[in-house]
């Protein structure tokens, strides 16, 4: 049995052997506004991609579109060559997992039960958790640094603890691509760094990561590429140190920025515009 679990956990093995996700011309409109406008993206497994941009630039919308929680008004998403629309929702949920900002519920569940929600796309009707599901849940809790929280009531956890448990839940989906919506929000500095460390480890095992981030220094530290959104449009794509120029940051965020050398490498510092 342990052999079977090993296979399941090894991130290279999945029923979808995916290496990349591409989005072309992704657009999302509501009655009053265009929230995403012709976004192109290219994500590879094993890499961390940051989605940057000010509040309201369309970061969360993009993540929801990719995960299938919102239907795109236009554009195509492909996993390798397969159109995501051709994929059943369950199969899609086995390829893509989302960690939302501030996941909240009134329903009393333990952290372990929350993590087991991630097995739903792998279970059938009358689905129940098998022994390997339970073992996988423990491993995911461990990977997310939340092993000691397993039996705690989710509602009693702190923001950082909840985020780790949700990350464990997303890992239990065994996705090829992990989507994180501002994962460091509301976390103290130590918790932010710990979470980013886990994210990098996840990518190192061959899972692609797409994270909406506010902190540009975090993005520069962990991302292989960044996509900068402004008013729903992509204004730049590429390696963070090449993309995040003072000119672009002034343009998009309306702040002055400067790269300053530090012991930990170049770091951005900010000041109000002129």
């Amino acid at each position: 049995m342990s052999g079977a679990v090993q296979t399941v956990v090894s991130s290279a093995v999945t029923d979808l052997d995916v290496t990349e996700l591409t989005g072309a011309d992704l657009t999302y409109r509501v009655a009053s506004a265009t929230l995403l406008d012709g976004v192109d993206l290219h994500l590879r497994t094993g890499e961390v991609t940051g989605v940057l941009g000010p509040n309201g630039s369309g970061k969360s919308t993009l993540l929801r579109l990719i995960v299938g929680a919102l239907p795109p008004s236009a554009g195509v998403l492909r996993l390798d060559r397969a159109d995501l629309r051709q994929l059943s929702r369950r199969r899609r949920a086995r390829a893509l997992a989302l960690v939302e900002q501030d996941a909240h519920t009134d329903i009393p569940l333990t952290a372990r039960e929350v993590v087991l929600l991630g097995r739903i796309p792998h279970q059938g009707l009358f689905g129940t958790d098998s022994a390997s599901d339970l073992q996988l849940a423990e491993q995911c809790l461990h990977r997310a640094g939340a092993a000691e929280l397993a039996d705690r009531d989710f509602a009693t956890l702190s923001g950082g603890e909840r985020q780790r448990v949700q990350l464990a839940r997303a890992l239990a989906q065994q996705p090829r691509l992990l989507l994180l919506d501002e994962p460091t929000n509301h976390l103290d500095v130590a918790a932010q760094l710990a979470l980013l460390d886990v994210v990098q480890q996840v990518a190192a095992t061959g899972t692609g990561v797409l994270a909406a981030l506010h902190d540009l220094n975090h993005a520069a530290a962990v991302c292989d590429q960044v996509i900068v959104l402004d008013h729903g449009q992509v204004v730049a794509t590429g390696h963070p140190h090449e993309v995040l120029t003072p000119e672009l940051i002034a343009d998009v965020y309306r702040v002055q920025a400067e790269w300053v050398p530090t012991r930990h490498g170049p770091t951005l510092v900010f000041a109000p515009l002129g």
Partner: peptide, 25 residues
């Protein structure tokens, strides 16, 4: 309804979470 037990679990964290777990909300 009993067959839908896991689908109901998927709604724990709301519609977006349910959709990302493979439920047609």
């Amino acid at each position: 309804l009993l067959a839908s037990a896991r689908t109901l679990d998927a709604f724990t964290f709301g519609d977006t979470a349910a959709a990302s777990l493979g439920v047609h909300v």
